[in-house]
Simulated assay, not measured.
Amino acid sequence: MIIRILLYLLLFIVLKIHAQNNDSRLLLGFNYGFGSEFNNKDYTFVNHFYKAQLYYKLKETKHFQYEILVQPEINFAKHQLLNFYFVKPETPDFEQKREEYTKLKDIHEYVLNLGFLIRKPVSKNISVYLLGSVGPMITDTETERMSGGFAFADVLAVGFSLKWKKIQFDIRPEVRHVSNAGLGSTNAGYNTKNIEFGISYPL
Rank of each mutant, 00 (worst) to 15 (best):
I5M: 08
L6Q: 10
L10F: 02
V14Y: 11
V14T: 03
L15C: 01
L15S: 06
I17C: 01
I17A: 02
Q20R: 08
Q20W: 03
N21Q: 13
D23N: 13
L27H: 15
L28C: 09
F30D: 06
F30E: 02
Y32W: 13
G33Q: 07
G33K: 02
F34Y: 12
G35N: 00
S36D: 11
N39Y: 10
K41N: 12
K41I: 05
Y43D: 05
Y43F: 15
Y43C: 01
T44E: 11
V46Q: 10
V46A: 04
N47A: 11
N47E: 15
H48Q: 13
H48T: 02
H48E: 13
F49K: 12
Y50R: 12
K51C: 08
Q53H: 12
Y56C: 05
L58Y: 04
L58K: 04
T61L: 04
F64V: 07
P72S: 11
P72C: 11
E73T: 10
I74W: 07
F76H: 13
F76M: 11
H79P: 06
L82E: 08
F84W: 08
F86W: 06
E90N: 14
P92S: 14
P92I: 14
D93E: 14
F94P: 00
K97C: 03
K97N: 11
R98V: 07
E99Y: 11
T102K: 14
K103Q: 15
L104D: 10
L104G: 06
E109M: 11
Y110A: 03
N113F: 01
N113V: 04
N113R: 14
L114H: 03
G115F: 07
F116T: 02
R119H: 00
K120Q: 02
V122K: 05
S123P: 02
N125G: 00
I126R: 04
Y129V: 02
S133I: 05
P136C: 05
P136Q: 08
M137I: 07
T139I: 14
T139W: 00
T139V: 13
D140M: 05
T141H: 06
T141V: 01
T143W: 10
E144D: 15
M146D: 06
S147M: 07
S147W: 08
S147Q: 09
F150G: 06
F150E: 09
A151H: 08
A153Y: 06
V155Q: 10
V155N: 09
A157N: 08
F160Q: 01
S161G: 06
L162T: 02
K163N: 14
K166H: 10
Q168S: 12
I171A: 04
E174R: 13
N180E: 06
N180Q: 03
N180Y: 09
A181N: 10
G182P: 05
G182T: 04
G184P: 03
A188T: 13
G189I: 08
G189Q: 08
Y190F: 14
K193I: 11
N194E: 13
E196G: 05
G198L: 01
G198Y: 01
S200Q: 12
S200C: 09
